[in-house]
Design a protein around this nucleic acid. Structure first.
Lengths: 254, 254
DNA sequence: AAGTGGTCTAGACCACTAT
DNA sequence: TAGTGGTCTAGACCACTTT
């Protein structure tokens, strides 16, 4: 039985051979040709079958492994991976989309110098009473508020980040990958909470509603924490979604 | 000026050359040697500097691109990527860890055949009134309840999945990647909600507390939806965390 | 034209697993 | 021992961008 003509690499295509083979194998797995736990053809067989070099097949297998579709075991073979919930990754795509649109506005509610509380001092590695800049922002989309942001930025006149952070446009850069060259890394965590009265009022929802709370700490290139705070988002205005298992198309994650 | 001895590839090491070079470049970026937006040495330069072949350097760059540390532009060069919030991905590692431990127990609260409601029918592509198996489970860790799971599984005597799903151990397999060869893919979504009285009672928290609601639909290899339901988890017993930007170590995601 | 990233080859050698 | 995945080479050729 000759191989399906669709499952053939077109050397005249603009799509590279390795990408075509990834697509072909993904589709075959998704179609159930290779079931979870079963072995894929060996790399040597794939070389011969599709007329590509070992290095190219190797690359294809690597990509499928990274995508979580298969698992390669040295000396044994390459096996189709069963569906696995634990590897699910939720992306903040929706948040990103929010900041890309022109209909999104950032309103600075407050920005003033305060003395660090015990909690703020602990998060930013400061002494209690040291100065921080307390910033409150309201992010709206299509005139409707969707995010309430409050953060503490360390106050250091020699550090230009304070002025930069005050700019309402700085937030947009953070989400879209602007030129925030002063920040090196950040740590994020999502909680589920019930909104306070202040939060509910600002976001135009009834108090007692559920919300996501995205806490963040950002560090500069000297690994000094420079910003701590969180976003509040009503639970019904944001949805984190993902997929697990085998898809015909490339996964949008990984 | 000779290169730092630490930034040298040890050919006698068990760690492959490409992995060493990934580590070296990551560290240099994290140390601020190459700042966001700046150009990395060209691939030819890296070949000469570290004494590896073009193919190996290419692989290294590919890995750094996948990790989100750099962006490669054909004809221009490879540039360090600025920190970008939108690319953050939250993993369910904690959930997975939960199911790996031996201290985790799954208790079947209920399993009975019911007629599909309008909502269930829509989700599972059934007619209203068709039979589904309604399952309620309580997942506990160290004798303390952490997850409440309710799902509808389509009822089809010829389909073995019903019996398999009834097994309380099936859930464990789903999270750890067991041998669930009947399920092809799933779609997941996270909401923030306020717990109902029933949920709060089962999870031993006060009603009105916030919770994560992880909704799921699973499909078999014929792309037929076979299971719809959701997990409820108290907001203070689960935290989704992630990092953005440049880290010295490999990111645990991607 | 020169320099950059991007693909691909045809092999070599190694480490591991099964028989 | 034979078969499997895993690394690596030393080039070739191409597409793209800058000068």
């Amino acid at each position: 039985m000759p191989a399906n003509l669709i499952d053939t690499i077109d050397r005249t295509s603009y799509e590279p051979a390795y990408a075509q083979l990834v697509r072909i194998l993904r589709r075959q797995i998704a179609a159930g040709m290779f079931r979870p736990g079963h072995r894929l053809p060996s790399e040597a067989q794939l070389c011969e079958q599709y007329g590509v070099s070992p290095m190219t097949v190797r690359r294809v297998i690597n990509i499928l492994v990274e995508q979580g579709a298969v698992v390669a075991e040295q000396g044994r073979g390459t096996f189709v991976k069963p569906i696995e919930l634990g590897t699910a990754a939720f992306h903040l795509d929706e948040l990103q989309r929010l900041f890309q649109g022109e209909e999104t506005t950032v309103k600075l509610l407050e920005a003033r110098i305060v003395s660090a509380s015990e909690r703020t001092a602990r998060k930013l590695l400061l002494e209690v009473g040291q100065r921080t800049v307390f910033i409150r922002r309201l992010i709206s989309h299509d005139e409707s508020p969707v995010l309430y942001h409050r953060e503490h930025v360390i106050y250091d006149p020699t550090r230009p980040i304070v002025e930069a952070e005050m700019e309402v446009t700085a937030l947009r850069g953070l989400f879209n990958g602007g030129s925030e060259a002063t920040l090196k890394r950040g740590e994020l965590a999502i909680d589920a909470t019930v909104m306070t009265e202040e939060e509910a009022r600002l976001l135009h929802v009834s108090p007692g509603n559920a919300a996501f709370r995205v806490e963040h700490i950002f560090y500069d290139f000297e690994n000094v924490p420079v910003s701590w705070g969180w976003f509040i988002c009503p639970g019904d205005r944001l949805r984190f979604t993902t997929t697990v298992g085998i898809y015909d198309q490339e996964p949008h994650n990984v």
